[in-house]
Amino acid sequence: MTVLIDPPNWPGPRGLYWSHLVSDSSLDELHDFAARLGSPRRAFDRDHYDVPETVYARAIELGAEAVSSQTLVKRLVAAGLRHRRVRS
């Protein structure tokens, strides 16, 4: 059971770069971790939280494992927790 975070490489709102926060075991674990981190539920998107660069170090302090974006996606898929957007 691990919460993973990728580097803040994704440009986003407020001129910040953003990371993805996921769990490789359960969404409950992810939601609990995000609450401890102070991430609002509205930051949750299907299978991950978008978190700003300003909380990256804190996430690691709380126990998130820093991984590459590729590793994050591979582990999310392997856990069966990947939820792709449905295109119409």
Results as ranks from 00 to 15, higher is better:
Met1Asp: 14
Met1Leu: 10
Thr2Pro: 07
Thr2Cys: 05
Thr2Ile: 03
Leu4Val: 00
Leu4Glu: 00
Ile5Met: 02
Asp6His: 01
Asp6Met: 15
Pro7Trp: 10
Pro7Val: 05
Pro8Lys: 09
Pro11Asn: 01
Pro11Gln: 09
Pro11Trp: 07
Gly12His: 11
Gly12Leu: 13
Gly12Val: 13
Arg14Ser: 10
Arg14Cys: 14
Gly15Tyr: 04
Leu16Tyr: 13
Tyr17Gln: 04
Tyr17Cys: 03
Trp18Gln: 01
Trp18His: 07
Ser19Ala: 08
Ser19Thr: 14
His20Met: 07
Leu21Lys: 04
Leu21Asn: 03
Leu21Ser: 06
Val22Gln: 01
Ser23Ala: 09
Ser23Gln: 02
Asp24Tyr: 11
Asp24Gln: 15
Ser26Ala: 13
Ser26Glu: 02
Leu27Met: 11
Leu27Thr: 02
Asp28Glu: 06
Asp28Gln: 13
Glu29Ser: 12
Glu29Gln: 14
Leu30Ser: 01
His31Ala: 05
His31Ser: 08
Asp32Cys: 05
Phe33Pro: 02
Ala34Ser: 01
Ala34Ile: 03
Ala34Lys: 00
Ala34Cys: 03
Ala34Arg: 00
Ala34His: 08
Ala35Met: 06
Arg36Met: 14
Arg36Val: 05
Leu37Cys: 01
Leu37Glu: 03
Gly38Ser: 05
Gly38Ile: 09
Arg41Pro: 01
Arg41His: 01
Arg41Gln: 13
Arg42Gln: 07
Arg42His: 12
Arg42Phe: 10
Arg42Glu: 15
Arg42Ile: 09
Arg42Tyr: 15
Ala43Tyr: 08
Ala43Glu: 10
Phe44Arg: 08
Phe44Tyr: 14
Asp45Ser: 11
Asp45Cys: 09
Arg46Trp: 07
Arg46Pro: 07
Arg46Met: 15
Arg46Ala: 15
Arg46Ser: 15
Arg46Leu: 07
Asp47Val: 05
Tyr49Pro: 04
Asp50Ser: 12
Asp50Tyr: 00
Asp50Met: 11
Val51Gly: 03
Val51Glu: 00
Val51Ile: 13
Thr54Cys: 08
Val55His: 00
Tyr56Pro: 04
Tyr56Asp: 02
Ala57Val: 10
Ala57Arg: 08
Ala57Phe: 03
Ile60Asn: 00
Ile60Glu: 01
Leu62Ser: 05
Leu62His: 01
Leu62Arg: 01
Gly63Cys: 07
Glu65Cys: 03
Glu65Asp: 14
Ala66Cys: 11
Val67Trp: 06
Val67Asn: 06
Val67His: 13
Ser68Trp: 00
Ser68Val: 13
Ser69Asn: 06
Gln70Met: 10
Leu72Arg: 02
Leu72Tyr: 02
Leu72Met: 06
Val73Met: 09
Lys74Cys: 08
Lys74Thr: 05
Leu76Ala: 09
Leu76Ile: 03
Ala78Cys: 06
Ala79Pro: 14
Gly80Lys: 08
Gly80Tyr: 04
Arg82Glu: 05
His83Arg: 14
His83Phe: 02
Arg85Ala: 09
Val86Gln: 12
Val86Met: 07
Arg87Tyr: 13
Arg87Gln: 08
